[in-house]
């Protein structure tokens, strides 16, 4: 299901959901929930966006039913802890690689995915100042290291 251009801002969160459907369905569920909530604010009126959002909602309802025995889905406070732990795990992996001078595509993706998951945490309420700073740092690092590698430079 292609993300309509009006909902471009959620395409990476949606892609993260697809990438985690098998690896970690809880992460996939909350990434979809974030995409749904944000998508509705962006555009839920044009036919292509409505069609996309209705399908996304159908999928979310199906996932919630299938994962009903999982506390991270049935209790949002448990889900919040799961997503935060997962985001921090991604962040720490990339940060350790960075501090060891190991720059590669996987660590760039981990920094970027961590930043997307800090966005997803906003479905549970206002982000903590620490999470805001971690998101900013992870996003900046992902962009900076990506550009360095693209230009054949060694990140500092």
């Amino acid at each position: 299901m292609a993300v309509p251009p009006q909902l471009k801002a959620i395409q990476h969160h949606y892609r993260t959901a697809l990438e985690h459907d098998k690896r970690d369905p809880v992460v996939a569920y909350y990434c979809r929930l974030y995409a749904m909530q944000t998508g509705m604010k962006l555009d839920s009126k044009t036919p292509e966006c409505r069609k996309f959002l209705v399908k996304l909602m159908d999928h979310l309802e199906k996932m919630k039913q299938e994962l009903s025995s999982n506390e991270s889905i049935s209790q949002e406070i448990v889900g919040n802890a799961h997503i935060e732990n997962y985001a921090l795990k991604m962040f720490l992996y990339a940060d350790n690689e960075d501090r060891s001078g190991l720059f590669h595509k996987n660590m760039i993706k981990s920094f970027y995915t961590a930043s997307l998951l800090f966005d997803v945490l906003s479905v549970f309420g206002e982000l903590s100042e620490e999470n805001i700073q971690q998101r900013k740092y992870a996003r900046w690092k992902a962009t900076y290291i990506h550009n360095c590698l693209k230009n054949g430079e060694t990140p500092q």
Partner: peptide, 27 residues
């Protein structure tokens, strides 16, 4: 026609909002 179209869109939006609230056990 414009009013009818926006009214339909608004109803569908409300329906999505309700489904979202239900999904999150808010109703």
């Amino acid at each position: 026609t414009g009013t009818l179209a926006s009214s339909v869109a608004s109803t569908e939006q409300d329906e999505l909002s309700q489904r979202l609230a239900k999904l999150r056990d808010q109703i």
